[in-house]
Structures are given as structure tokens and as C-alpha cells.
Nucleic acid binder design. Structure first.
Lengths: 222, 222, 222, 222
DNA sequence: AATGAATGAGTATTCATTCAT
DNA sequence: CATGAATGAATACTCATTCAT
């Protein structure tokens, strides 16, 4: 079983420190000095173990993408084995949420980190990271997406592509800014829901979005 | 009539260059050197005209927030004058979309910039920018939000708060990453829709999200 | 009669602002921006009226050296006219103190400024300022110094030169750091004397220093 | 044995270059570029080894304050062991002078540097440096000051405080401007005494100042 | 396997000064 | 007589990376 940070080996200590700092300050804003200081290792150790800051980010990414894909696949298989009926959108999103929360268990700020990672991957100049993630990520999610689309309103491929990114935007924005949004709620005197609560709030909203009837292309033009 | 960048005065040249660079590279990643080089202006001119990089960002923000609020208010007033019936969610979103597109007319990457600005404002350590925007922004949007909520599914204040940020996330993520998403579509062999098309695609999805019946609090717990 | 700063002409407004800032922050630490901001004049006005920052410093200097020399000469003449006896060191220092306090009347921080000016003049690379002051300053003080030396212990020219600078050091250090020293006294729970009090405290100390019998040169060697 | 600057390690080369430049140009006027150029070292090395310019100044300070305190304590102890009689003011000042000269041995401009450091510490906005020095400096000088006061004329605490600073002013002004004063002597055709000679000239003057009878408070008021 | 030292290229910002108007 | 705009050179400081050990 893994020990806490001070007992782990250098490479692991770096990863753990990097995860926490990337999650709370973002990738560009986090410096190698901050990471190595928090990990209590030598500044050069990052380059030694991961080649570069970019290499470290990819290593961090792998530690999330792998278990996430595995868990989602597994949950999906279990559901399909237990019930022959095609899963509804809400069910699929519930599976996704439970998968995310399971990843989250490892580390309080894990989801924020993961969402920041997605955000980064879509930025210009990050083609390398994008393709790296896409290569190890997209194929394993294909079956999930296929099932999802089956229970959506009928739509073309590109319509689905965009709706998927609308959903992704909600997820990325809400979770990577979770701290700030929570603070705004606190200032407004509202309860501050935990991440689980927020994810569940998202399910009916996203479901309705996927199931909404698409405008006809012609009607879209003003 | 205003000439293109090379003929405008220094302050304007700086703003125009900054808008373009901020939109495509983000705020932190854009350096004053890049801006002043693109504007063909002395490095110290930014500090002379805007005090600091932060001041420049706020100036850029104002150039979008001001006309955006004005246009939205005006469109809303026209709609209410023309038709006594309370506007539906779709109508309100349509007004918002038309407002955004009008701001967009000024500058090809204007919306991406504006969305990056919102993204930045929610980041930790940007309380100052957040409050600056909130102070000049929030009050003028209050009536829009009030009308929006009237046609939503019934829900509590905090539920509305979160749904609003789900929507905001879709907008911010999709539009600030418009270039990347378009490229992905190109690689997939799909048509590459313009921003107008994407925004109209969003309307039914977002509308459905706002009108979806909220899960009861008890049911949210797994 | 002179009006307060806001009504004076540009050149005077600059001088007044400069005096205050130079006195409290020192010459090198005070920027032309601070001066012109405080004087509420254009940044370029300093260069326009005084040629350069250095020119401004010399102008400030003149406004102190001139009345100081005049007052000291006059007081000395009055004393010599009233009493044929050669003045004692204490009397001469008392005249000097009264002269300084009179200059001080014009402006609360005038003495600190004047002392900072002397400090600056002795710094390396300030030969120009030193000679400027020396040319308009030294000759008019010659008679004062002659009288002073007559009541000192007998000593050679160079011994007198150094003792004079020991005195000058006490004056310059104490008065230019008056704010700081006062604060230290406050922290120690002592009364915070005004400048007049401090100068009078200095008289017997300095007098004793001038009248102390010089060590023979031979004895100085360890 | 230590080699001259070119053979020492980077951190030492920086310190040595900084000492020389700080001594001759002052702290604010000396730039990191000048220091690193003189030390023949990368510009970033200062920050690497000392964190900041301020950190470098404190490091320079420590290299003087530490041996100075140690030497003075030791000399005082030796004197007290050798002779049971309470030391006179002149003796104490002689000890101080010998201590200063010993520090001086290390580096030609060491005393000028040290005096500039004291000067800086009394400036407004240097509370941090002042307290840093005061914390490591003042306690170790307490016994010296106590003995000094015992042989002074009787006076109150605050009178002693000010006289001490009159003395300090003489020291700081004379030694930090040693180069300039020497040049003035040269121009006047006098011999140019070395620092040892000047310090010994100061002893009887300062002694007389400490032993002068204080004016009564009432008499001080004009 | 790991690190202390070092570095080149970069950052935003500040400064006194100049100049066209 | 005065000024708004502009600027070149400099400031302290930071960064990811490299390299000898």
C-alpha cells in the first residue's frame, strides 16, 4: 500500500506534489520550484525523472486517464450484464458521475486537476498533449459514447460532437472552478454543496440537453 | 472611420494587438513584448497608457462588457415593448446569442477573448478582476436573469446559480476553444460551422437544461 | 506674500513638492513622477523649467543656502556689534542653531532636506553639486568658522577640518534621520523631542568636542 | 588560504564584488548587473544564492556584524580581566576603534561599507533591515554601552540615546564619505590621513562630548 | 540515482528624458 | 509657455533547463 508523501520515492513525491499544485493553481502558473519545494526533492529531479515539465504533465495525466477508463468500462459492463435493456442517458451519466467520484476518492482535488487537464488539452499549441490523450482515451470511451447517443434525440454526427462539448464545457468549467464557485455561494449565504452534489445536479440538466430536439439547420439561420 | 491597426493611435493599436493575442494565447501566456511588437509600439507604452498588464486586461474587458450590456438591455427593452407576453427561455437565449454575435462583429476573435476573460475571472487569485467585472456587469444583467428564471422549471436559488454556471461553462469552453474544436471537426471530415451556427445549436440544448425538472435533494444522494 | 501650493506658478509648485519629497524619501528615491504628481503639473515641466532632475536639486539647494548664509551673517554681525568680546563656541553654535531653526520655519521638513542635501554632496560622483555648494557656501561661512576656531582648543588646520566634519556628521545623521530616531524613542517610551530640543542638546556636546585637547600625533599611533 | 576574487566560488565572488560596490556607490545605486559583472558571474546567481538584492545586503551585513561583535566582546573581556578598574570612556572608544580597524583589515573599503549599512538602516522604509540588525546587534553591545555610560556625565536615558546617535553620526558620516573627505584634504594641500588616524582623532572629541555636562532642560528652551 | 550549482532567455515594470504640438 | 505622448535603457527578478559530480 502506498505511503504518504514523505515516505514515497522521489518520482512519486513529485507526482503527488504536482497534482495538488496543478489542481489549485493551474499548469502554467505552477512552477517546478513550487513542485519540488512541496515534494521536498531537488529541483533537477523533475527533469531527471520526467524529462521536462511537459513530461510531468503527461505523467500526471496518465495517472488519471487510466483508472478512469478502466472503471468506466467495468461499470458499463456490469450494468449491461445485469440488465439487458439499453441504458438511458440518465443512467449513463450516473455511471460517469460515479466513475469521476471514484477517481476523486484518491485525492481531494483530483477532479479539478483532471478538468484543468482537459481544458489545457483543448488550448492552442497543445496538439501534442491533445493527441496523447486522444490516443489513449478516445477508443476506450467509444462504447460509452455509442450507448449515450442511442438514447439521445436523433441528430447528426456533428450535432452530437458539439453537444458533447457543451457537456464537457459544463463539467470542465464547473469543476475546475469549484473553489471559486463555492466561495461565491458562501458569500451569497447559500449552502456549499460538495462535488458529489454538484455532479448529481448536472445529470438532469445534461440529460435534457442531449435529449432536446435539434433545431433544423434551416431554422438556425436568423 | 477608424483605420486598421497601423493607422490608429498608440493606445488603440495596443488594445487591438492585445485582444488578438489574448484571444489566441490566453492572458498569462501573452507577454507585453508580444503585444507591443505586434502593435509596433514601444514596450513602455503599455504601462504609459494602461498602467500595467492588469490594467490593460481590464481595459480590454471594458471594451466588451460595456457594449454587450448595452445591446442586451436594448434588445430586451425592444422585445418587451413589442410583445406583452413574458419571453420564453428560447427567446431570451436567442437575444443573448444575437448580442454576442453583434459584439463579435467588431473582431473575429472577440468572442473567444471574451470567454477567456470570463474563464480568467473565475480563477483563484483573480478576485480583483472578478469583482471589477461583477460590479459593472452583474447589475445590468439582473433583469435578463430574472426573466430567464421565470420560464425555467421551478427551482431554488442555489439550483439556479449552478445551472447558470453549467450554461456559462458550455459557452466559455466552446467559444474559447473554438479554433481547436473547429480543427477537430475538420480532421473528422465534418463541416466547420461558424460561431453563429454553434451558438444556435446551443439554444435548444441550454433551454432544455434550464427547463429540466430538478432532482429532489433526497434522490441526489446515492 | 506667497500663496499655498495650488495657487503658485508651475515652477514654484514643483520646487515645493520636490522639497517635501526629497526631505522624506531622499533624492535618488524620489522620482520625477512623484514630484510632478504631488505638484499637480505635467511630467515634462521639471525638465522644461529646471533642465533635469539634477538642475531641480540645485534649485532646491539654492533656496536653502541663500537665506541660511544671509541669516547667519546677519546674526553674527548683530552679536559682534552688541558685544565687543570674542564669542565663545557655545554662543556661535547657538547662533547656528537659531539660523537653522529659522530656515526650518519655512517648511516642517526643511532641515531634514538640507541635511540630506549635504549628505548627497559628499557622495562620490557628486563633485558637481559639491563644488556648486562650496562656491556659493564656503566663502560666506568663512568668518563664522574663523571665530569658531579661535575659541577651540589649539589645533592644526587639518585637525580642525576633521573635527568640523565630525560635527557635520552629527548634524546630518541626526536631522536627516529625525523621523526614524523619533520613532525609536517612541518605541522606547521616551518623550519625542522636537528638532529645537535636539539641536540644543547638541550644543554642549559639540562644544566640548571642539574644545577637547587634541591627542599628540605620536600618541595616536597604537 | 582564500584566493582573490577570481578563484573563489560564486557565492563568495558575489559577496566580495557587492561589498566593494556597495561601499563606493551605496546600496540603492548599485545594481545587480554591476555586481554580477564585477564578480564575473551570471546575473541570476545572486537570486540563486541570496534570494534577492535585499538578501544579499543582509548577507553582507552579517559578514561584518558577526566578527565585529565577537571581537568587541572579546577585547572587552580581556580588558576587564586584566584590570579591575572600571574602564574610562577613552579606553572604551579605543577598544571600539581597534575593533573597527580589525574588521577593516579584511577589506580596504570595509568600514565605509559598514557605515553605509548603518546609514541605510536608519532610513525610512528600512524597518526590516533595522530590526534585523537590531536583533542580532544590540544585545551583544549592551555591556559595552553600559560601561560607556558609567563614565559619562550623569544624564537621563534619552539624553544618552541622543548623544549616542551624535557619535554614530560622526562615525557614519566621516567614514562613509572617507574618499570624498580625503580628496578635499588633498585639494587643500594637507596630508591625507589613513582611517586609523581619523578614528584616533575622533576619540578625544567623542569622549569630551560624552562627558560634557548636559544643559538643564529648562535652559534648553530659548 | 540524484543533486547543488549555474545559466540564458525571459518577465513586468520604472526611469529620466525628449519631442511635436 | 506648457504638455500629452512616446521612448530607450535600465531595474529586480523568475523560469525551465542543463551539467559536472
Amino acid at each position: 500500500m502506498k505511503q504518504p508523501m514523505q515516505d514515497a520515492d522521489t518520482a512519486t513525491r513529485i507526482i503527488l506534489a504536482a497534482e495538488a499544485l496543478f489542481a489549485s493553481h493551474g499548469f502554467a502558473q505552477t512552477t517546478l520550484r513550487q513542485i519540488t519545494a512541496k515534494a521536498d526533492v531537488n529541483l533537477a529531479a523533475v527533469n531527471y525523472h520526467y524529462g521536462s515539465k511537459h513530461g510531468l504533465i503527461e505523467a500526471v495525466a496518465c495517472r488519471f486517464v487510466d483508472p478512469l477508463c478502466r472503471t468506466l468500462d467495468q461499470m458499463l459492463a456490469e450494468r449491461l450484464a445485469a440488465d439487458a435493456a439499453a441504458p438511458r442517458v440518465e443512467e449513463l451519466l450516473e455511471l460517469l458521475v460515479r466513475t469521476l467520484l471514484q477517481v476523486q476518492d484518491r485525492n481531494a482535488s483530483a477532479l479539478a486537476l483532471f478538468m484543468r487537464l482537459l481544458d489545457l488539452a483543448y488550448m492552442p499549441g497543445q496538439e501534442e498533449l491533445r493527441q496523447f490523450l486522444s490516443a489513449s482515451y478516445a477508443p476506450r470511451l467509444a462504447s460509452f459514447l455509442q450507448l449515450l447517443r442511442k438514447d439521445c434525440a436523433p441528430m447528426q454526427d456533428n450535432e452530437f460532437f458539439w453537444r458533447l462539448h457543451f457537456l464537457l464545457g459544463s463539467l470542465v468549467f464547473t469543476l475546475s472552478n469549484y473553489e471559486t464557485l463555492n466561495q461565491l455561494e458562501r458569500e451569497a449565504g447559500h449552502e456549499q454543496p460538495d462535488i458529489e452534489r454538484i455532479l448529481h445536479r448536472m445529470i438532469p440538466v445534461i440529460s435534457a440537453g442531449f435529449q432536446a430536439r435539434a433545431e433544423s439547420t434551416l431554422m438556425c439561420r436568423v
